[in-house]
Amino acid sequence: MSEKNIPAKKRIKDLTLLEKVYVPEIFKGLALTLKTMLRPKFTMEYPEEKFIPPASYRGRPILVMEKNGEERCVACGLCARVCPPLAIEVQASETENEKERYPVRFEINMLRCIFCGFCEEVCPEEAIIMSMDYELAFTNREDAIYGKDKLLVPVNQSSDKIGFLRSYR
């Protein structure tokens, strides 16, 4: 019944004599840090050296501009509906073109955007896609709202991404 009957269990944290002396352990640690110190570093020195993302990368959303200089977007508003942080605002209007409808105003608030890519996924026209562009910096809230002027990017600049989207559709 007494506790003495229970054999002393060896615990992992029990140290050996050598470990208790501490000095060898110090040198082990020093050797480890020395090894790390001499290893080549993987840091990418950003402004000089830029990260080129793979085609699946989700950078800032852009609107695809067709070769005739017009957007593919028909302002259906599905991206605005699916957008979890409500970053997208679309105001549709009528155009004489065959597609009838176009966005007279298309704004993405990059401060709200969470780069989830839902808009890209939901778009029926392949008109909004997540670009490879990750360089987003603003100095005020107004600048963070990207209108059509900043969002429209010619289609040939996004061929990698569109190719990726089509191969996984």
């Binding site: 259906c76 508003g77 605005a80 509906r81 549709a92 209007s93 009528e94 409808r101």
Partner: peptide, 9 residues
């Protein structure tokens, strides 16, 4: 009302 707004908005 043509193209003024989506009904769900």
């Amino acid at each position: 009302f043509r193209f003024k707004s989506r009904v769900w908005e």
